[in-house]
Write a protein that binds this DNA or RNA. Structure first.
Lengths: 161, 161
DNA sequence: TCCAACTACTTGCAAAATCGCACTGGTTTA
DNA sequence: TAAACCAGTGCGATTTTGCAAGTAGTTGGA
């Protein structure tokens, strides 16, 4: 990425995220609670290959979308965390998921999270972003009860069974 | 696109729109009022090349995002129109534009439309989608006064001067 | 202590996509 | 009738993708 094509915010977003894997990886970190290379690789529903995963993780870290910190229990393991920049993509994911659910041949199991997020509306997105800030940025929580992430995951798992 | 990687709505959206040009072309049709091959090519701020533009237009038509109709005044000219499927991407564009404006080095001139759309909120997006339905789907208008597209364009042009 | 399994990658290679640019063939305008 | 305009196509170079295999350090169990 030497110089950008134009200063248009849509174009800049496309230049950063407009490929076949970046958003899928961020989705897995955000909604699938996959935080390591191995988890992202082995639990990838779309089957990303090792070199592309390594490359995208590098680029996403360089772009300030993810941070990598070593796992104290396992010297080789890197744990990836979302940055605030990535967390603020939640409304984009919510709308894109709703759009895909409406117009593309999405399967019910995979659609359930998009549906919940769509029905929850902006208030739920805000709660979800707060949960992500607790999980990924180490903010302290002020709320009680299950997190939005847990709700989404529970709904997804219930469909999987 | 033989078979899809997974039935996840985010993944399916990425498979359809996750490249370096599709969203940029749709943005130009939607916000830039460019309706022909020539307009999209010559007024492209990012400088798309002829073969890629031709290829993407073909794919977007095949995907039901655009329709092509002949210009009665000019037998060679095709006029491209947004479908309802494409028009419902407006909220995605609005959020993605807002995100790019906040986090990426967008220039003021190019940001003005994203800013107006962000400040206008969902009510403005609905008005804009109605305007697009009038322009692109031939629906009859029930509102008076300037269209949202005209407002956005006027603001953009004012910045350009 | 040794070794197999696990971790996070890197490398090599072929296929596909993207790129800029020249060019084509029909249409309209002067 | 010539020049300009229109929507592409063809080509060769570069880049990206996808798959498979290999590497190097880490961990856990016998």
């Amino acid at each position: 990425m030497p110089d950008q094509r134009s200063g248009c915010p849509i174009n800049l977003s496309v230049e950063l995220l407009g490929d076949r894997w970046s958003l899928v990886i961020l989705r897995d970190v955000m909604f699938g609670a996959r935080r390591t290379y191995g988890a992202l690789l082995n639990q990838s529903d779309e089957g990303i290959s090792t070199n592309l995963l390594a490359d995208r993780l590098k680029k996403l870290v360089a772009a300030g979308m993810l941070t990598a910190t070593g796992d104290p229990d396992h010297k080789q393991k890197n744990v990836y965390s979302l940055t605030e920049k990535a967390i603020t993509l939640v409304p984009v994911f919510a709308h894109l998921g709703a759009w895909g659910r409406r117009w593309l041949p999405a399967t019910p199991q995979y659609s359930i999270r998009a549906q919940l997020l769509e029905e929850g509306g902006p208030e739920m997105w805000e709660r979800f972003m707060d949960d992500l800030r607790v999980e990924h940025l180490g903010k302290t929580s002020r709320r009680l009860g299950p997190t939005v992430a847990e709700e989404l995951q529970a709904a997804f798992d219930a469909m999987a069974r």
